[in-house]
Amino acid sequence: MKVLVTVKEVAEPDDDFAIEGTDIAASDLEYGLNEWDDYAVEAAVRLAEAGIADEVVAVTLGPERVEETIRKVLAKGVDRAVRVRDDAFEGTVVDVASKVDVLEAVVDEEAPDLVLGGVQAADTGFGATGVALAERVRFAHAAVVNDLEVDADAGIAHVHRELEGGVEELTDVDLPAVLTVQTGLNEPRYASLRGIRQAQRKEIDVRDLADLGLSAGDVGGALTVTAMTEPESESDGERIEGDAGAAADRLATVLRERGVGAS
């Protein structure tokens, strides 16, 4: 079977950052693989190592910058990657339906049996692309999966969905399917030196929207960010100042006043 992993390079703000217009200043952002997608990549590579998946393909949407992140994914054992160039998307928040337009075209081309992606992207946090994609391409789906076992012969993925409050739902999902992967599903590996060397020779197929039969007009965003602010601290709490020793003195007093460690 073939597994398609959707991956996103996300931006993470530095501890100190400035807002310029409707986004964080580019100089205050660090880019890396979305944490949730790292677990999806690991799950896909393990399926290949277990002999269940014959091929693992990663797909991403992004400018040339993201190839560094894609190489890391390839170094972890993904066989090849497709990068859809997104000049039309640069500088905007891409809405769910537009991402699905692109991914639908890639799913049509690749015809995977299983699509894995993170539950959400750390930067925009929509948490919706996987389920919307499943609906569009008529695959079965399950969101927020934290346990996965694939029975390829039966054509079923046995999953646990992590609900709120320490409850998991046990679900059987027919293949082909889209699963969105929660952190904690597995332990994502670090790329080996050998993997990093091999990744240099792996293919990253760069596609334009036109190659996929789409135009910029087809993927117009339905969502326009009009303002971005840093939430004001609502705390009326005490900020304990001073060096570690002085802070510990004050905190010990506070804790003792509440009967902590009084025995």
Binding site: E12, I19, T226, A227, T229, E230, P231
Partner: peptide, 12 residues
């Protein structure tokens, strides 16, 4: 919110 609750956005 965006960026893991570090900022709040309004969007049309």
């Amino acid at each position: 919110e965006m960026y893991g609750s570090k900022v709040e956005t309004t969007a049309a």
